[in-house]
Nucleic acid binder design. Structure first.
Length: 483
RNA sequence: GGGGCCAUCGUCCAGCGGCUAGGACGCCGCCCUUUCAAGGCGGUAACGCGGGUUCGAUUCCCGCUGGCCCUACCA
């Protein structure tokens, strides 16, 4: 069988991280099956439509590296791939259902619907459309439909059950009496999701439906539509949701949920996908760090489990760190460059890569870590900080002077600098660590930095010396209390 | 209210009748070490409850409890 799967976002906002996970699973399945992946835009709600959303979908998926074969901008044999451009198709199918007696026009106003609902509520009854228009005689209904505003509703059987054998959840059954006469075509001529998804999945020859778990409760409606059309429903797999830390569906109030945000916060797309794939799926072994190619090999729908998984930022950070460390130096440099101020010297920046690679969890942490190399004015250590515990300011001035001598005359290599500095510490009767820390403060202005010897090497002899000198001056001018 | 789904460390997963219940994140130690990381080693911590079935249940069945989703002319 030829695999054809789709992901079908509605353009109501920017691309959500949960949609990325759903899309990823569709993508992995399509690629490992040598099948086709389709993007379809479900813009049947004109009120919630956001014009920029399509760009967000393309940008976001493009960034993570998911590619597809048929879609609004790619075209394909089953287009158009935007539902608002397929209106006449849905209308025609809805009319067919009416004429074969499986659907009917409904003329109830929204006001009536609302009052029926509140009445049912106050009586403690199930709130459901009362099927008021279902009994209008077909000829009469057709006549009214010609002039009156109306919707088309599915004629749901009074009882019986309908079932799905879900690829993830197994056998699920619903009593038909719990399902209302669903609207298929709205009064503005647009289809509802329930109609459009079935018509399109069928017309586009979709072989498997993989979608979020939250669709499971409305699946019986779709099954009923398939049945009414006499079409066979493709296999379905519902995917467990990505939850917020509080266990509810992940949403903006949990923090970042938009792909763009993760990009801006310095996450690597490969890390994001790796982490995301593991919410709801495991290869069954202890392997858990993968690139996309490896996931395409390993992923199996049978290994997707049922329970929703909570979002865990710490764990994402961990995976991001792993993927940062897995990058080659040039690749990391390119990613880092995007996070550095434009005026920072690129050649110097390139040389910082080995110093930061194992210290970063996100790319966004990079500028802070190396800013001392690019910004002379920003380095101003406080006098009090420069003096190690149990040392005096005067001693520290002397120690820095010795460090300056080494810095001026040593061969310009890590080995020579380190040897010289350790020798100087010995002569001074200082612990090497104390001298390194004083020097670190003097040269970088910070207590947490990349290794200080390498940092000095990158800074250059003259700049380093200037900073040591400045630190000495600061100490000599320091407040009396620390002299 | 109705329908559906789910249930192993704090979190993400493994387990698919017999295991000292495993890995990862986090956390805590130790090692390494010029700070911070990274890395290595070790530790902490879980089968929601009650009934069955079975020689034997984390695993199968039922109930309970809890959580979540849907219940729109939204998707």
């Amino acid at each position: 069988m030829t695999v054809r799967v789709r992901f079908a976002p509605s353009p109501t906002g920017s691309l959500h991280i949960g949609s990325v996970r759903t899309t990823l699973y569709n993508y992995l399945f399509a690629r490992q099956s040598k099948g086709t992946l389709i993007l379809r835009i479900e813009d049947t709600d004109q009120e919630r439509f956001v014009p920029e959303a399509l760009d967000s979908i393309y940008d976001g998926l493009g960034w993570v590296g998911i590619t597809w074969d048929e879609g609004p901008r790619e075209g394909g044999p089953h287009g158009p791939y935007v539902q608002s451009e397929r209106l006449s198709l849905y209308q025609e199918r809805a009319r067919a259902l009416v004429s074969q007696g499986d659907a009917y026009p409904c003329f109830c106003s929204k006001e009536r619907l609302a009052s029926v609902r509140t009445q049912q509520q106050t009586r403690g009854e199930v709130t459901r459309y009362d099927r008021n228009c279902r009994t209008i005689e077909p000829a009469r209904a057709a006549a009214r439909a010609a002039s009156e505003p109306h919707v088309i509703r599915l004629k749901v059987p009074e009882d019986g059950t309908i079932a799905l054998d879900d690829l993830v959840y197994g056998h699920v059954e619903w009593p038909l009496r719990a399902i209302e006469d669903q609207v298929l075509l709205k009064s503005d001529g647009f289809p509802t999701y329930q109609l459009a998804v079935v018509v399109d999945d069928h017309r586009m020859r979709i072989s498997h439906v993989f979608r979020g778990e939250d669709w499971l409760p409305s699946t019986p409606k779709h099954l009923l539509v398939y049945r009414a059309f006499g079409w066979e429903a493709p296999p379905h797999a519902h995917l467990p949701n990505v939850l917020g830390p509080d266990g509810k569906k992940l949403s903006k109030r949990h923090g970042a949920t938009r792909v763009e945000e993760f990009r801006a916060q310095g996450y690597l797309p490969e890390a994001l996908l790796n982490y995301l794939a593991l919410i709801g799926w495991s290869p069954g072994t202890e392997e858990e760090v993968f690139d996309v190619a490896r996931m395409i090999e390993l992923w199996r729908i049978e290994q997707v489990h049922k329970a929703g998984g909570k979002w865990d930022r710490e764990r994402l950070d961990h995976f991001n760190g792993l993927h940062i460390r897995a990058l080659g130096p040039d690749a990391l440099f390119e990613r880092l460059a995007a996070f550095a101020p434009a005026h920072w010297d690129r050649a110097l920046l390139r040389r910082t890569v080995p110093l930061v690679q194992e210290r970063l969890r996100t790319l966004a942490e990079f500028p802070d870590l190396v800013s001392f190399l690019f910004d002379d004015a920003g380095v101003k250590p406080a006098a009090a900080q420069l003096v190690p515990k149990k040392r005096e300011a005067a001693e520290t001035v002397e120690a820095l002077a010795q460090a300056a001598v080494v810095t001026r005359f040593a061969d310009w290599s890590a080995a020579a600098l380190e040897g010289g500095l350790r020798g100087a510490a010995d002569e001074l009767g200082w612990k090497a660590g104390d001298l390194f820390m004083a020097l670190r403060l003097a040269v970088t202005g910070k207590t947490v930095t990349p290794p200080i010897i390498d940092s000095i090497l990158l800074l250059g002899r003259e700049r380093a010396l200037a900073r040591i000198e400045r630190a000495q001056e600061a100490l000599q001018e320091g407040p009396p209390s620390i002299r």
